[in-house]
């Protein structure tokens, strides 16, 4: 069953003086539980596509359906609620609030929900445990290593238990060992049922995905329909 269906997605960045077409009629579908890697050279439209699939950026034209819901024409507040319930983001630069502890950073997406503070804490502890950082919840981001910060960011992305996890170069700022650890974690989360779409520049991680979609100049050039088997992290 398709979790994501994207039809004729176009996106233009218009700075006023000149317009840049980042995506050109992209069509794709991603099944529930799939692990998809978006690859391609810089400026090929990977991050833009990821952001549109995550309902963070509104496509200039085209239709995006997630879990049967047409998110194309949702209002601003509805899009925020949708992101809260359906999408978890992991960024290359971690983007942790420097003034909150690891546990509080993980709790942040729960602030806007109706669940009690006690339950928020419980869920955040559970998410931290999933990424192996249950003992470091009281630390500030500055007191954690780069790998640990990225794992906190992953915990924050999954604390709401969203069906869709989007990762934009999650290993881009990490060394090989930490990168491999993060990838193992993502693979594990995928096995637990999260659908994952990941942007990566690192060809070593492509085999870990079920499917690799290659973009060039804003269009899919490879992998729109094929399914590859996930490999193991060495």
């Amino acid at each position: 069953m398709s979790l994501i269906i994207a039809k004729d997605i176009c996106h233009v960045y218009d700075s006023g003086e000149r317009a840049y077409e980042a995506l050109k009629k992209v069509n794709m579908s991603i099944s529930e539980g799939e692990f998809v890697a978006l690859v391609g050279p810089s400026g090929s439209g990977k991050s833009t596509l990821l952001s549109i699939l995550g309902v963070l950026t509104k496509a200039s034209s085209g239709i995006v359906q997630i879990d049967g819901i047409d998110v194309t024409n949702l209002g601003e507040e509805e899009r925020a609620r949708f992101r809260r319930e359906y999408v978890g983001f992991v960024f290359q630069q971690f983007h942790l609030m420097p003034y909150l502890t690891a546990l509080e950073n993980v709790m942040l997406p729960l602030v806007m929900t109706s669940i009690s503070k006690k339950e928020q804490k419980e869920k955040a502890r559970l998410a931290l445990a999933k990424v192996g950082l249950e003992e470091k919840g009281h630390r500030l981001p500055a007191q954690l290593s780069g790998g640990e910060q990225e794992r906190v960011a992953i915990a924050r992305a999954i604390v709401n238990e969203p069906p869709l996890l989007l990762a934009d170069e999650p290993t881009g700022a990490l060394d090989v060992a930490n990168g491999n650890r993060v990838m193992a974690l993502l693979t594990d989360l995928n096995k637990q049922g999260h659908t994952i779409v990941m942007v990566t520049h690192n060809p070593a991680y492509e085999p870990l995905a079920h499917r690799v979609i290659r973009l060039q100049d804003g269009a899919i050039v490879e992998g729109s329909g094929s399914l590859t088997r996930p490999g193991e992290v060495s």
């Binding site: 963070l56 925020a80 992101r83 319930e85 806007m112």
Partner: peptide, 16 residues
């Protein structure tokens, strides 16, 4: 501004 963007990414409304 990155804080503003991040809060939006994790589900805070623009007005909030």
């Amino acid at each position: 501004q990155w804080e503003i963007a991040l809060l939006q990414a994790i589900g805070f409304g623009r007005k909030t």
